[in-house]
Design a protein around this nucleic acid. Structure first.
Lengths: 139, 139
DNA sequence: TTGCAATATGCAAAAAAAGGAATATACTAT
DNA sequence: ATAGTATATTCCTTTTTTTGCATATTGCAA
């Protein structure tokens, strides 16, 4: 008779480390954010516009992802740009979609109304049609 | 000048569906359970022994995974056996491990002290060395 | 400096998840 | 039926997350 082998559970520390990753991914808006960063970095105002969420809210979710080590941020003047540090996580999203079924909608749309210099070099912050001088507004 | 394409976020419903999956995976003990089920179904008492956790606790975590659609249960006499319904989730665990680094320990160990018929056909419930008749115990 | 825009952070109430304990259910054997 | 074993579920308390709101910070321009 052959010696029987018994499986032992993966150690708790490893399980916790993995759980931390999934914990970062367990939030719909955070998943949307990661998905939006697929093709490269985006500035916060852009994400805000695309998601239609309050600024502080988006910033909070970004912070969660950043603290989990999934995002890097880069400051450029007034704007900050976030990008994915571990592109492998995108594979997790794809697997999740495959497992839970149902593809998501098309991935192209009309331009969001986002003021960041990259999105709207003309519109944006830069020239900013001045209609009143500070003095006029303050009367 | 080329028409610029804009990415839209995956719809919230999809994101929520995926989030539900990750939510089920965000718990260390649940990950340990899934890992123990890699090589096929196991009975609850077995899992209990391997994890060193209370029965009710293990049962609760199994229920979470079952309700998330990740586990199937099969009743056989007094015991119930759980198995993974979507083997693809194991890929998620592997990816998570790869992303979070650090391999887990060896996967073989001495037999757990588990009473289920499969583990210990001799030991187990079945023969059960009878030392007293019911009458004797009840006096 | 002052003011404004972009972004981040702190705080508190509400919601959700975790974990313990008791109890319920289902089978088996007597 | 009765008792015992294996497993599931319910209830309750504690801990974490979530999320809105206010405020702080940073950079830039007037």
């Amino acid at each position: 008779m052959q010696k029987k082998e018994y499986t032992i559970p993966m150690n708790y520390a490893s399980a916790e480390r993995q759980a931390r990753l999934f914990k970062a991914l367990m939030h719909p808006v955070r998943l949307q954010i990661l998905d939006l960063l697929r093709d490269g970095e985006q500035c916060v105002c852009h994400l805000e516009a695309l998601l239609g969420q309050r600024q502080a809210y988006v910033s909070q979710q970004l912070a969660v992802l950043r603290k989990a080590g999934l995002l890097n941020d880069r400051r450029d003047g007034g704007n900050s740009y976030y990008c994915i540090t571990r592109p492998e996580v995108l594979g997790l999203l794809d697997s999740a979609r495959a497992i839970m079924g149902e593809a998501w909608s098309e991935r192209s749309a009309p331009p969001p109304d986002c003021p960041c210099p990259r999105c709207s070099p003309s519109l944006g912050r830069s020239p900013d049609p001045v209609m009143f001088s500070t003095e006029e507004i303050l009367r």
